[in-house]
Computed example of a mutant assay.
Amino acid sequence: MIAYIIRRLIGAVLVMLAVATLVFFMIRLVPGDPIAAMLADSGSPEAREALIRRLGLDQPLLVQFWRWFTGVLQGDFGASLYGSNQPVADILMTALPKTLSLALLSFIIAIAIAVPAGIVSATRKNSAADVGVSLFAFLGLSMPDFWLAILLIIIFAANLQWLPAIGYAPMSEGFWEWLQHLILPAIAIGTGFSAIIARMIRSSMLEVLQADYMRTAASKGLTHRVMLLRHALPNAMIPVITVVGIAFALLISGAVVVENVFSIKGLGRVLIQGIQNRDYPVVQGAVLLVSAFFVLSNLIVDLLYVVIDPRIRYS
């Protein structure tokens, strides 16, 4: 197991190196000029040349890449091309807690809905409960998260005035204040993911419940609850864990639309603004950070396989 983890970590480092190289060169293939965007129509040719030299954009691409890459190896992601040349690390560390908080709460809501819904749907196949879960999954997959977000704002913020409509409150201001600002966007994001996971659990549970060892467990006189929780659910969770791991990584990077609806400047919003502004260092740093979450998520999923099913061993 330790040797496997070491190999995976080495592979993760190689993946991150490849991502760093690709994002550096591919962002520069996007049409647009950061200097033109910064100066608009007000800059003279002299001012343009001076700004290019100050930002180091007059150097060959390979020289620029080497300077940025060696900085990343030392924990320096460079500085934003805009504003007061704020370090990219500071921008990302300001946005990351907001995105992580939103992703974690959305993930908890999705799991809290999906697991019992998927189990009930599988154990009561073709019943009213199964039809209800299938209908919920259909609606959850069909509704755009931004539409659900707007609907929640209209109901709970504008009409009932129970919760704030926009903004983010850090945990330092209190748990309730933090939860009030995040519960609506978390529901908007988590509902769609809960539908995906619930359908996955239902499909996997139905397959497991028809297995021979489940009939053997029933012939031994085990109760339905023991059969379900100790035999069916752990075996059914193997493919579900894969989907859950990918879903959590997607929550980190895919909440940009809902973040904009609720005016939360998280990681996704920072990335989109960086692309719009051609802010190369910000885009490079954000993509690297998101890639790191995907790599880490895949490693955790592989390790959870062993925890859930002791028969799985990595050699």
Score class of each variant (00 low, 15 high):
163 L>E: 03
48 R>H: 01
19 V>D: 01
252 I>W: 03
229 L>P: 05
203 S>K: 05
192 G>F: 10
36 A>N: 13
252 I>E: 11
74 Q>K: 11
185 P>G: 08
304 L>T: 13
278 R>G: 00
234 P>I: 07
7 R>K: 14
204 S>V: 01
227 M>S: 11
254 G>R: 03
245 G>K: 04
277 N>A: 15
5 I>H: 08
135 L>I: 15
262 F>E: 01
111 I>D: 08
44 S>K: 12
264 I>L: 10
241 I>Y: 10
26 M>P: 01
211 A>W: 04
277 N>M: 15
293 F>I: 02
195 A>N: 08
231 H>C: 00
145 D>F: 08
177 E>V: 15
42 S>A: 13
157 A>Q: 10
200 M>V: 11
204 S>I: 06
179 L>I: 15
186 A>Q: 07
213 Y>M: 00
107 F>M: 13
53 R>K: 14
37 A>W: 12
33 D>V: 02
302 D>E: 12
21 T>W: 15
255 A>M: 02
79 A>G: 03
185 P>I: 10
34 P>V: 14
95 A>C: 04
5 I>Q: 05
103 A>M: 06
229 L>T: 14
189 I>S: 12
27 I>H: 04
300 I>G: 11
91 I>K: 13
177 E>M: 15
205 M>C: 06
175 F>K: 01
312 I>Y: 11
170 P>I: 05
144 P>C: 04
171 M>S: 12
191 T>F: 14
150 I>V: 12
137 A>H: 08
84 S>E: 11
79 A>P: 01
120 V>T: 09
106 S>H: 12
20 A>S: 15
4 Y>P: 01
63 V>E: 09
274 G>Q: 06
101 S>V: 03
182 L>G: 14
170 P>S: 05
13 V>M: 11
113 I>S: 07
262 F>T: 03
299 L>I: 15
111 I>M: 15
31 P>N: 08
22 L>D: 09
39 L>Y: 00
34 P>S: 00
264 I>R: 14
297 S>K: 09
242 T>F: 04
2 I>L: 09
18 A>Q: 02
179 L>V: 15
165 A>N: 07
275 I>P: 02
138 F>P: 04
119 I>H: 08
218 A>E: 10
245 G>L: 12
153 I>K: 05
241 I>A: 12
303 L>P: 05
61 L>N: 00
201 I>G: 09
8 R>M: 02
27 I>E: 02
247 A>G: 07
94 T>W: 07
138 F>G: 09
193 F>V: 13
125 K>P: 02
237 M>K: 10
112 A>M: 15
293 F>K: 05
279 D>Q: 06
118 G>P: 04
260 N>D: 08
180 Q>P: 07
97 P>K: 06
107 F>E: 08
54 R>G: 00
139 L>G: 05
94 T>Q: 13
215 R>S: 12
280 Y>N: 06
222 L>F: 14
33 D>S: 07
24 F>W: 03
192 G>K: 11
153 I>G: 08
